[in-house]
Write a protein that binds this DNA or RNA. Sequence first.
DNA 1: GGGAGATAGTTAGCAGGCTAACAACGGTAT
DNA 2: ATACCGTTGTTAGCCTGCTAACTATCTCCC
Lengths: 145, 145
Amino acid sequence: MGAALGRVHRLWRQAINHAVSPLELTESRWAVMVHLDHLGEGCSQHALAHQLAIEMPSLTRTLNQLEQQTLVERQPAPNDRRAHTLWFTERGRRVMADLEQHIQAVRTAIYGNLTDEQLCQLAHIVCAMESNLHQYLEHHRGNGK
Amino acid sequence: MGAALGRVHRLWRQAINHAVSPLELTESRWAVMVHLDHLGEGCSQHALAHQLAIEMPSLTRTLNQLEQQTLVERQPAPNDRRAHTLWFTERGRRVMADLEQHIQAVRTAIYGNLTDEQLCQLAHIVCAMESNLHQYLEHHRGNGK
DNA sequence: GGGAGATAGTTAGCAGGCTAACAACGGTAT
DNA sequence: ATACCGTTGTTAGCCTGCTAACTATCTCCC
């Protein structure tokens, strides 16, 4: 039954991939851009990875791609020579401005025929499952089984 | 917002992976076994891939693994020399019998604090989103854009 | 100040989804 | 019969998640 979530997630990824492909983006790169915008420029990779709920190496790879596309850049962080701060480039900011309009069609296609109440229920249930899963995994790691 | 589904799916995969690891299985191999059982032995790879909602090459790889573990075997199909029929081995059937008990803990951990009504709502909403996404993708493929 | 342990980021390589391209076979129409 | 098209399954290789192991740095405590 949790498999249904996987199916929807893969379809959603395909839809987003299609929607942002005119901007030379993919779902994962798009997600990084959006969350960087949401978190605010100048944040660390660690903070961004936490926000995205992915591991650092996954983010490292995606950031390399975005940096190669000159959409995002890493700058040395003041006060910590290990860390980087993340910033949009000029071009990155222009792309961000265009994003919403490309995504909107997907959003309305997916959520269009659902009521606000249903979306609220969905968010609530999914959040509960997420927290349940976190708890399960945390519990079954400290112990051997 | 669809990203939350991805997070839950990844956590769920980790939980299942953990739960079935004593049987030398992973979530994807487990899913193949369960769906083969559900669909009935003797079915074709195509039918099983459809049931799992994955593409044939993904299934091919997983079946290779299961065959190497002597849990499942491919047999030539009568009446169609291209196709295979899929069968559990003796060992595979024994493992299937053990599966439910290993999975149960995960299920109760995830769904335990949700009401039947919530699960029903979830199934309904997820199903709607799945069908919306299918429609979107179908629509935006026939056309150039 | 100097050493032990935590933390930020990277690299390497695995897992399992996908598409594209192919071989082998089936089915149908001429 | 043969020619063509659809189907089944495989191979090759991309994408993006992950863990493990590493470097470089920071922090804290003696």
